[in-house]
Structures are given as C-alpha cells and as structure tokens.
Simulated assay, not measured.
Amino acid sequence: MKKKYNIVILIIFLSITIEFSLRFFLGFCDAPLYISDESYEYIAAPNQNGKRFGNTYSFNSFSQRSKEVNPNKTKILGLGDSVIYGGVQSDQDSIATSIVNKKLPNLQMLNISSGSWGPDNCSAYLKKYGTFNAKAMLLVVSSHDAFDVMDFQPVVGNHISYPKQQYQLAWWELLDRYVNPRITKVFSKKTKLDPDEKANQGIEKNGINFNPGFDELKLISRNFDLPLIIYLHPEKSELQKKKYNAQGGLILNWATKNEIKILKGLDYNFTNIDYRDVIHLSNSGQKKLAEIMINELKTTIKYTSN
C-alpha cells in the first residue's frame, strides 16, 4: 500500500510539475486567439497580449499586431500574411513592422495581417475599417497569393492553428494540439493541413481566378491617393533558383501592367539563414525586410526625423 501511495504521489507531483513548466516556460494556455469575420474570414482577437514559446505578442483594438493607432504619427499600412504577421515564432519586437517603428519614431507602420491571408483579405479589412489616415500601403505577398482567394472555410475553432479559446490544462494542449496531430500524420494520408503548411511544401494554390484583392487594393490606393507598394517575397525554393515561379510571374506582370511599384525580394541579399522554414522569415530575415521597408518608405513619403 505504501508503494502504491508513493506512486500516486509521484504521478501527482510530475503532473503538477509538467503543467507548471509548460505554462511558465513555454506559454501553454496562452496562445493568440482568433475570431471569425464575415468580411475577411478571420483575424486575431482584438486587445490581447501574451507570451508564447518565449516570444511576446500583442494586438490592438483593431486586431493589428501593433500598438494602438497613434493619431500624432504618420501611418503606413503594412498588409500581408504570415510572413509579415510573424506568428508566435517571432517576438513582437522582432517583426519587421516593429523594427520600422523603432527606427522611424515619427512613423507608425500598422501590421494588418494574419496567417494565410491574401490581398483580398487585406482589401476587405480596409473596406471595413478604412485606411486610418495612412500615407502609403505596403503589401507583402508571395507567389502563391496570385490564386489564394478567400473561401470562408470555418477554420476558427476548427483548426488547431486558429483557436477561439484557451485550453484549460497545458498538458492537454500539448497532447491535443501537438502530439496527436503528428501521430495522426504518420498513420493517415488524409491530413488536414493549415493553408500556410501547404504553402511551406511548395504547393501552388490553383484557384480559378487571379486574386481580386490586387485590383481592390489598387482602387483603394487611387481613391485615397495612397501610394501602393508591393513586396514580392520569395519562397526558399525560388531563392535557390533565383527566379519566381509562374504564379509569381503573374503578380509581376500585373504590377507592371497597372503601374504599381513592386519590390522583388530576389534582388536583395537574403540567404537560407534568413528563413526559419521554406517561406517564413527568421529574426535576421525580419531585420532585412525591415531595412527594405525603411529605405522605400523614406523615399515614398519623404520621411524626416523632425
């Protein structure tokens, strides 16, 4: 009986230790939460901040990964998907938009983005909330965004990458969100991948029509007299080939035809160490992206430090 009692005590002790460690050191039960939206599918819930895997995250009242909109600063709309969003793998201070704001203190670059967003998500957001009296728009896209059109699949609360509420127990989150999907992936060919995970595998998105968000953002740009700048981010495979794929070529052709300025990531000195996977940027990559943004914005809006 004493031996069984000791085993029970040990199990309880280990369970409490694991629960505490997962919460305190890794930020379990503190993931960014998401909400659905009838205009642009989904976005991070507003007014939340936390720490996950050692990295801080924060969202303002407009669900932007930014501080509250400052009426006294020149605003720039930073638009895009998980590349500019950063995810919990990037600390709030390490994402490109935060670096821009630190180095250009009289300017506020708003981070309006979410994982697997396309240009149409971004344009729908601006149609709903307006342009925040911004002076320019900078859209970060990748080749697959050419056909990454909104389909309004109910991902919030249904996919592990878009939770709508916190887990009550850290060890259950570990098992349900990380362990079980990997076990399932091994034994099942039908794995429900996150859209960004599909992109990570180099899979082109085969939509029927070219993403309408490009034209919608161009129209917003013209109507509000906002310069629109596009940064075409290369996937690692494109970086190695030093050439964009066919879908990237379509985006380049659209920009040329519509006289929209487009910055090509392949023209800059990105290397493999600037990527944390086949598409998302590491901290060094975010720094380089920030420098590209800074140099372009200084020219576009004639920024001064005074």
Rank of each mutant, 00 (worst) to 15 (best):
G207Q: 12
N72W: 07
H233T: 15
Q153L: 09
K4G: 10
D120I: 05
Q168P: 03
N6K: 05
Q153D: 12
Q240T: 15
A45F: 06
A146T: 11
N200L: 12
G86F: 04
G130S: 12
S282I: 03
E291N: 12
I12K: 01
N223F: 10
L104E: 04
K189F: 14
D145C: 13
L228T: 03
K302R: 11
R182F: 02
Y275L: 06
T191Y: 00
P71T: 14
M137Q: 15
N106H: 07
L138V: 04
K205L: 06
E235T: 15
L14Q: 03
N245W: 10
N283K: 04
N111K: 04
S58V: 08
W117E: 08
I99E: 01
W171R: 00
G115H: 00
E216W: 03
N306F: 07
N49P: 07
D274Q: 07
D196V: 09
L281K: 03
N70S: 14
N283H: 03
S113V: 02
K198D: 02
I16Q: 04
A255T: 15
S63G: 15
N269I: 10
K243M: 14
Q108R: 05
A146H: 12
R65W: 08
A255G: 13
F53S: 09
W117I: 01
N306W: 05
Y178F: 04
G78M: 05
E204F: 14
F210C: 05
E19N: 11
I292K: 01
L226S: 00
W254D: 08
R222Y: 02
N306M: 05
N70K: 08
F25V: 08
Y162S: 09
D30N: 15
K75N: 13
S36V: 14
I35K: 13
L139T: 04
P32K: 12
P105F: 03
S58L: 15
S15E: 02
L14D: 12
V88Q: 05
A136V: 08
L14E: 10
D274T: 06
Y231E: 05
N209P: 04
L110N: 02
G265F: 12
L33W: 09
D215E: 03
F214T: 01
E259V: 08
V156K: 10
N49T: 07
